[in-house]
Design a binder for these strands. Sequence first.
DNA 1: GGATCCTTCTTCTTCTTC
Length: 339
Amino acid sequence: MLIQCTSRPVRNFSACHCLSSPKRRSSYSLAVSERYSSLVKSVMSSRVSSQTPDTLQAEDEHIYGPVVKAQPPSSKPEKREPKTLHPFLISEKTLETEETESGPPVRILLKRGQGGSSAPSVTRILQQTLSPEQRFYLERWKRRMIEELGEDGFKEYSQNLFRQGKLFHSTLDDIMESGAAQEKKAPAESPEYPAEVQGYLESISHILEDVSAVRAIESTVHHDSLDYLGIVDCVARYRGVLCLIDWKTSEKPKPFLSNTYDNPIQVAAYAGALNNDGNYKYQVDHGLIVVAYKDGSPAHAHQLSSEQMLQYWRTWLLRLEKFTEQRSSHTSMDFSEKK
DNA sequence: GGATCCTTCTTCTTCTTC
């Protein structure tokens, strides 16, 4: 039986992200039919909490002030343009990489603190330039999670998410490096990989079949003129197209690009840095965001065209400008405080 | 040797009717 769940077909209820909690599986799963799925969903997804939407709203308003409802987020797309439109691609560099594709993938390690380099990272810039709306929803989510799990429980939960993400990445690095991806061997079947990431590996196995010519793994990129840096997950061909690939793990399904929040901006920022980094002799104008799931259901792959990459590059430049403005206003404030 | 850095994640919402 196929059940449509958040626009993603799954084999059964136990594989459904919305209904199966990671802690325990419901015994209802065998008895329910599609007819009752929305009812079951609403019953099972209700929170065990004495709070009602009204009290939550009241709490939100108490902490953040009244919610301004007259600002639908997507109705006014940001038309702003960066003050300086730094190029995404460099004309001297080539997009063709045939001659350099035969060697092993590069891995440029991060060297911090050398030569007084204090370039900010992509992650830090994105974190510090979140919109007030993003901040609000993240804070609210965190508060609700703490209400449910307690401070310590939430800490454990977050650490667990990070640990799984890191383990998935490092395992994937090993697979890529050993060339297992090109051998088209199902890595999930290999017993040498940690049990905790087997589901994620199964989830991306169909993606790995389309990945070839791995050029870089966990490699540092630095934008030589804009002076920011980051660590790229992977550069490889996906279905023949050279892409900057970002691997993600997620508890919730992310079938649409819009579900990935700032990830496309992150990918464009990395690609722009790689293109403007003298250590890389080629450049990349496509992106790929792969969202892997623990239960092994097929990962979602969001490919970014060169046009989309350019669009997100502009958004990135805006965020970078915002960051720089914030930083200069902070340092001038520090200066006046010290004075 | 210890401290710090870069990552790793987390948000978008609501009912009502076939």
